[in-house]
């Protein structure tokens, strides 16, 4: 009993994520080093950006809406069909919270690793951006603040797009 609890703790302490998912519905992924650097950009300072997104509750609504739109989007159907949506929603919320300065840690994989087998092209990357824009519009996030978040995400094109 002690050993089963101790081993994950030790691995976590060593900076490795335990392959067992935090939420039962998530599928396991290969072990990786947990770090906020995996979020792929530096967070905003101050609380203005998070406020523009209506706090973590607003971020959660934006992410859920973006994922819902993308699952239903014929341009993205192939990619999202093969995606663990539970894990995606959780890690995206963490990533956006982290980038917007919520002081939350990002526990997901880096962008290159997370997308390496998905064969995403630029048009698909852009389709996701459009769905994010729609979701932010619905949340009533000011256009300037939308673009400020997009400025953090845009360079991830380099790691996300592989073909």
């Amino acid at each position: 009993m002690l050993a089963t609890r101790l081993i994950p703790t030790l691995i976590a302490a060593a900076g490795l994520a335990w392959a067992a998912p935090a939420i039962a519905a998530e599928k396991p992924v290969d072990p990786y080093t947990v770090s906020n650097a995996n979020a792929g950009a530096q967070p905003f300072t101050g609380d203005q950006m998070l406020a523009a997104f209506h706090g973590q509750a607003g971020v959660a609504r934006v992410v859920d809406r973006m994922v819902d739109l993308s699952v239903a989007d014929p341009r993205l159907a192939e990619i999202f069909h093969a995606t663990d949506l539970e894990r995606l929603r959780r890690t995206l919320k963490e990533q956006f919270d982290y980038l917007l300065g919520a002081g939350v840690d990002y526990t997901g994989r880096d962008m290159k690793t997370a997308h390496k087998d998905q064969g995403i092209n630029t048009a698909e990357f852009n389709a996701l951006v459009e769905n994010l824009q729609k979701a932010m519009d619905q949340e009533g996030v000011a256009f300037r603040a939308q673009n400020q978040l997009l400025a953090k995400l845009a360079p991830m094109h380099r790691d996300v797009v592989t073909r």
Binding site: N121, E124, N126, A127, R163
Partner: peptide
């Protein structure tokens, strides 16, 4: 070379 995808720019 490879498949052509027209459209898709923001």
């Amino acid at each position: 070379a490879g498949e052509m995808v027209n459209g898709g720019k923001l």
